[in-house]
């Protein structure tokens, strides 16, 4: 137990929370935007995988250590947005059940990326035989010299800063712009929104595309920041954890961020506990088990609250 606390009390551990939270947060923001418009994006996992592979592929193709990873990120974002649009097409235009469309997209993501990886590298497991580049870490002047805070907040990957900046951007977008208001209106009451002339389907398309873009950034980070290669099924459930985080955060940017940090904490914990003498499999299950418990507690709380409100 003492060992455990010495791990958690470490500034490097706090830094690792931010690192681990980044992809979950980005995908969770994606889930939250969709949910604000009254849509379900079940396909986050598949979108992240495609973006992760695309990022590595494009950055490797450029062969440039300077801007290769940025091109990769851009390509990953583009693919993410395109897949978000595709999901929107399936759900909104073809009227496919959103859950099943998401499951299908995840299946295509999981197997399609392996297939493409094989066509590209000849390996169906990992892309490390082809050199790809990572997005840079940022040292923040002044901050980096402060003892504990510097370790935690400076020297993170550029996408980590981007993710938290996007939280602020999303707050602004959803609550301070007319477009954001329309998206929320469509989510709250599509009929009312329709009656005042808002194009419900168009708003929902936009939400799916934004959702895909955010998940795409998260996916690109996985293969070009979190690690420096693509491996099959490398997202290992982060897309689903993101859904849970968005549900727990009531799909608000702030709530979703807090919930994502919670899941990031358990995941970072499970990473650093692997150095302790606890069996690997038990540690590995921690984030998922925590998600179940957290989601149940949250649901219980919601039910209690609505009961009280009725009284």
């Amino acid at each position: 137990m003492e060992e455990l606390f010495s791990v958690i009390g470490n500034a490097a551990f706090a830094a690792s929370i931010l690192r681990v939270t980044t992809p979950i947060l980005l995908a969770a923001l994606g889930a939250a935007v969709a949910s604000q418009a009254g849509c379900l994006n079940m396909g986050l996992e598949g979108i992240m995988l495609f973006s992760a592979l695309t990022g590595v592929f494009v950055s490797s193709l450029t062969g440039s250590a300077v801007w290769g990873s940025w091109a990769g990120l851009a390509a990953g974002v583009l693919i993410g947005g395109a897949l978000g649009a595709l999901l929107g097409y399936l759900v909104l235009t073809l009227k496919t059940d959103a859950t099943l469309a998401g499951v299908a997209l995840n299946t295509i993501g999981s197997n399609g990326t392996v297939f493409l990886l094989y066509v590209w590298t000849g390996s169906s497991g990992i892309s490390s035989s082809h050199k790809s580049f990572v997005l840079p870490d940022l040292e923040i002047p002044l901050l980096k010299d402060i003892p504990v805070l510097g370790t935690i907040f400076s020297g993170q990957n550029v996408v980590t800063y981007l993710a938290f900046a996007l939280v602020l951007a999303l707050i602004f977008f959803l609550y301070k712009t007319p477009l954001g208001l329309r998206i929320r209106a469509v989510g709250l009451n599509p009929d009312a929104a329709d009656s005042v002339g808002i194009n419900v389907v168009r708003m929902r398309y936009l939400a799916y595309i934004l959702s895909g873009v955010l998940a795409g950034i998260g996916g690109a980070y996985m293969s070009m920041g979190y690690v420096s290669w693509f491996a099959r099924d490398m997202t290992s459930g982060r897309g689903f954890i993101a859904l849970a985080a968005s549900a727990m955060g009531r799909s608000t940017p702030v709530g979703t961020t807090v919930a994502s940090l919670l899941f990031g904490f358990t995941m970072a914990l499970s990473n650093s506990m692997q150095t302790l003498s606890i069996p690997y499999e038990l540690v590995e299950a921690v984030p998922y088990a925590c998600t179940i418990v957290a989601l149940s507690v949250y649901a219980y709380h919601q039910v209690r609250k609505s009961k009280k409100a009725r009284k």
Partner: peptide, 10 residues
């Protein structure tokens, strides 16, 4: 009323 989908995936 917890989402059976997310919980079953976890």
């Amino acid at each position: 009323n917890a989402s059976e989908l997310v919980i079953s995936l976890m």
